Amino acid sequence: MKRIAIDMDEVMADFNKKHLALFNADYGEALTVEDLHGKKLRELRPNLVNEIRGYLKDPGYFRDLEVIQDAQEVIKELHETYEVYIATAAMHFPSSFTAKYEWLQEHFPFLNDQHFVFCGDKSVIKADYLIDDNVYQLERFTGKGILYTAPHNVHEERFTRVNHWQDVRDYFLK
């Protein structure tokens, strides 16, 4: 059985919606996902990098992120044909472990929690495929990297790209 590793933030969980909402509320701005085209929020507001990263240090930040449309359904289908692992770079924000684990249990109860990998560098993941929005992780991965479209990676052209979960379904199940 082939193995697929799937990133969590910006692939399964809608990270940007909450991040922008908090930032906009705190700084009186009206930034949208479209404003992030080709960039991360910290690149748009470099003078507020510490404050922007500070949101992510909140132990509960990752607990209530919305699930990206169709992720549950497609991952459940993948789980029937592939060995599915969730690989999240939680070492960047160690206080996120509990929230991420609880989020995965709530929204993906059909997955084996022994297949949840909390790591930093995903080059340690032994899988045939890695679906991730982070080019850095795909560059170091030894299997086939699949780039999940996120605002910050729209200009990247080196990897097979999927724009949404229906593309993932088409790639792996058709």
Results as ranks from 00 to 15, higher is better:
Asn50Ser: 15
Leu111Tyr: 02
Asp7Gly: 14
Phe97Cys: 00
Tyr55Met: 06
Leu41Trp: 04
Ile75Thr: 09
Ile6Thr: 06
Ile52Asp: 03
Gln72Pro: 09
His107Ala: 03
Trp103Gly: 09
His19Asp: 10
Thr81Ala: 11
Thr98Asp: 13
Thr142Asn: 15
Glu106Ser: 13
Lys39Asp: 03
Glu102Pro: 05
Val154Met: 14
His107Cys: 04
Ala99His: 01
Val33Tyr: 14
Phe15Met: 12
Phe159Asn: 07
Ala13Cys: 05
Asp121Met: 04
Ser96Leu: 06
Val135Phe: 04
Thr88Gln: 07
Val124Arg: 14
Met8Tyr: 02
Ala71Trp: 05
Val117Leu: 11
Lys174Cys: 05
Tyr27Trp: 11
Leu56Phe: 10
Phe15Arg: 11
Asn50Glu: 15
Leu130Tyr: 02
Gln114Cys: 08
Phe15Leu: 14
Thr88Trp: 00
Val154Thr: 11
Glu34Ser: 15
Leu138Glu: 12
Val162Gly: 01
Asn24Ala: 08
Val162Leu: 09
Met1Ala: 14
Thr81Ser: 13
Gln137Asp: 15
Ser95Val: 13
Leu130Asn: 00
Glu80Trp: 03
Ala87Asp: 07
Pro46Asp: 04
Leu78Ser: 06
Asp64His: 00
Arg140Lys: 15
Asn47Ser: 12
Trp165Ser: 02
Lys18Ser: 08
Asp167His: 06
Phe116Thr: 04
Phe159Cys: 02
Ile131Val: 15
Trp165His: 08
Phe116Leu: 11
Leu104Gly: 07
Tyr148Leu: 07
Glu106His: 11
Gly54Glu: 05
Gly28Glu: 12
Tyr85Arg: 06
Asp128Ile: 06
Val74Phe: 03
Arg158Gln: 08
Gln69Glu: 13
Phe97Met: 06
Leu20Cys: 02
Leu111Ile: 00
Arg63Gln: 04
Leu56Val: 05
Arg158Phe: 01
Asp35Asn: 15
His164Phe: 09
Met91Arg: 09
Gln166Cys: 13
Ile68His: 03
Asp7His: 02
Glu29Arg: 11
Asp113Trp: 10
Val154Lys: 03
Tyr136Cys: 13
Glu66Gln: 02
Glu157Thr: 15
Ala150Ser: 11
Tyr101Trp: 14
Thr32Lys: 11
Glu66Thr: 02
Phe97Gly: 00
Thr160Asn: 08
